[in-house]
């Protein structure tokens, strides 16, 4: 009985601990740690973000920081997204936009996860960043606003055409759809079965002209009186085969989206630049 009480107490403590460790309120969606926005701007942006989330069934997070321990805003953004459990549905679908002031510049980065990787290919991310860059003189609020507007525009168009033949794997990685190889499979099957049937058909033909007398050659009677090989000429030809380049590990490009793995192992797409 005493033991049961301990177990019950442990379970109670465990559930109590969840809200303590997961302290961040993921419903806020706007996290202005670098204090670049007014409270009013934050509230406006939050309602715009909520519209996006409701309309496209993808999460959206806006983030500013001036204390990024990494050299790349990607790392901070990806960790923030993964560790706090943002994202909707099975693949944690969603986008995060960060303005990183750590280096003293506006290092912006757009992070995509899950289905958002398929929606925002590299070209679309570039266009979104262009739209943001256009309004960078007008302040941070305008930059976030441009991000939401441009992202909504592309989300309404659905999956990027360059990613039509892709899908997300169990781990949330982007992969090409496997197309059933009708033609090569059919061709292989027909060729192999034709060869097998041909061999079996040939078995019914047993009457053949003999062309060799090797059965009647006296063993050991072959006596070579001349074995001479004279060198005639040599010839060297060359064919251009092109340079072989190897791709780097950890990141890759499938369809139209470049992806890389975060510290937690989750695949993210995205792109950023200094403004």
């Amino acid at each position: 009985m005493k033991r049961n009480i301990y177990v019950f107490f442990a379970i109670f403590l465990f559930f109590l601990a969840i809200p303590l460790t997961n302290a961040l309120d993921t419903s806020l969606k706007v996290y202005d740690y670098a204090d670049l926005l007014t409270d009013g701007e934050e509230a406006t942006l939050k309602s715009e973000v909520q519209k996006y989330i409701d309309a496209y069934d993808m999460d959206m997070v806006l983030l500013t920081t001036s204390e990024n321990p990494y050299s790349d805003p990607y790392d901070y953004a990806a960790d923030f997204y993964d560790e706090n459990g943002f994202g909707k549905n099975q693949y944690k679908d969603g986008v995060l936009f960060i303005i990183d002031r750590t280096q003293g510049y506006n290092d912006v980065y757009m992070l995509t996860t899950g289905e958002a990787i398929r929606v925002y290919d590299d070209n679309r991310i570039d266009s979104i960043l262009d739209d943001i860059a256009e309004v960078k003189e007008e302040g941070y609020y305008q930059m976030f606003h441009a991000f939401i507007e441009s992202s909504s525009f592309y989300a309404s168009k659905g999956v990027a055409p360059s990613n039509k033949d892709t899908h997300l794997t169990k781990n949330g990685d982007l992969a090409y759809n496997r197309k059933f190889p009708w033609f090569p499979f059919g061709l292989i099957s027909i060729i192999v079965s034709s060869v097998i049937v041909g061999i079996l058909v040939a078995k019914n033909k047993m009457v053949k002209q003999a062309t060799s007398a090797s059965l009647y050659l006296e063993k050991g009677s072959v006596n070579y009186t001349r074995k001479e090989d004279r060198f005639l000429h040599t010839n060297t030809s060359s064919v251009y085969i092109g340079s072989s380049s190897s791709s780097s590990g950890g990141s890759g490009r499938v369809g139209g989206s470049s992806t890389r793995s975060s510290h937690s192992g989750t695949s993210h797409g995205g792109g950023g630049r200094r403004m």
Partner: peptide
């Protein structure tokens, strides 16, 4: 691709 060409001469006798 390097191709060396030789002319091979063989003579011999045998019994069937």
């Amino acid at each position: 691709t390097k191709t060396d060409t030789y002319r091979a001469y063989r003579e011999g006798n045998m019994t069937f």
